[in-house]
């Protein structure tokens, strides 16, 4: 069963409810699916297509456009080493080579125990702290070979479970809009008037 489970369907409907058009929830729902299964399954895509009112082909098209959605299982920890300019200037390639040797896989591969997937990625927005990496989108800065070894050991031993959840989980805090505060969505085709706080002429400066 790799469609969204019951709890996630409830979550999905809540998320969809925040957008004027259900289709806008596609990417958030793909994240929910990846959080549930660790990667994006075909069944999940078909399910999301039903939920947002698109075809499966359209959701597949959206899904494959974005780097973070994995169409095949990846390791419990996705180790992304940045190799764009700032990190490259500070030795990112050597770090990748070291990681490949240490894990016994090439970048793009997954260790046989299913623990680590190693990827060479583009700029992660931590350029002054180069070379940097992300493990399941949690940063490690100014990483040298020894620190990388230690980090991988810690991950493998489960010492960082509190900080770094398994692949698929990005944010552990979700927005939740209290019913009594929500304004409700503003549908593009149903609203033709200026909002009430605007001056009557509806003009701005």
């Amino acid at each position: 069963m790799t469609r969204l489970n019951d709890a996630n369907q409830v979550l999905a409907r809540e998320i969809i409810g925040r957008y004027p058009k259900a289709r806008s929830a596609t990417i958030p729902l793909l994240h929910v699916a990846q959080q549930q299964n660790g990667y994006i399954t075909q069944e999940a895509i078909a399910h999301i297509a039903e939920l947002v009112g698109a075809t499966s082909a359209e959701v597949l098209g959206t899904c494959t456009f974005y780097e973070m959605f994995k169409m095949h299982p990846v390791g419990k920890y996705l180790i992304n080493i940045c190799t764009t300019m700032s990190c490259a200037l500070m030795g990112a390639e050597q770090l990748v080579t070291h990681a490949e040797q240490r894990l016994g896989i090439k970048a793009g591969g997954t260790t046989p125990d299913g623990l680590f997937t190693l990827e060479r990625v583009e700029c992660q927005a931590a350029c002054t702290e180069a070379p940097c990496l992300q493990a399941n989108y949690r940063y490690r800065y100014r990483v040298n070979a020894a620190q990388l070894d230690q980090f991988l050991d810690d991950l493998a031993e489960g010492q960082l479970d509190a900080e770094i959840p398994a692949h698929g989980v990005v944010a552990r805090v979700r927005q939740s809009i209290p019913v009594d505060r929500a304004v409700s969505v503003v549908a593009p085709d149903d609203v033709h008037e200026a909002p009430v706080w605007m001056p009557l002429s509806g003009t701005t400066a």
Binding site: Q42, A46, T55, S56, A57, E58, L60, G61, T64, F65
Partner: peptide, 27 residues
């Protein structure tokens, strides 16, 4: 397929130089 026929059963997938036209598997 999308605009005229209303049958968006083909779509671009992937990105950049790897973009291709695809159907959903089994559809």
């Amino acid at each position: 397929a999308d605009e005229v026929a209303g049958d968006a059963l083909i779509s671009f997938s992937y990105r950049g130089n790897e973009t291709q036209i695809t159907t959903f598997p089994d559809e």
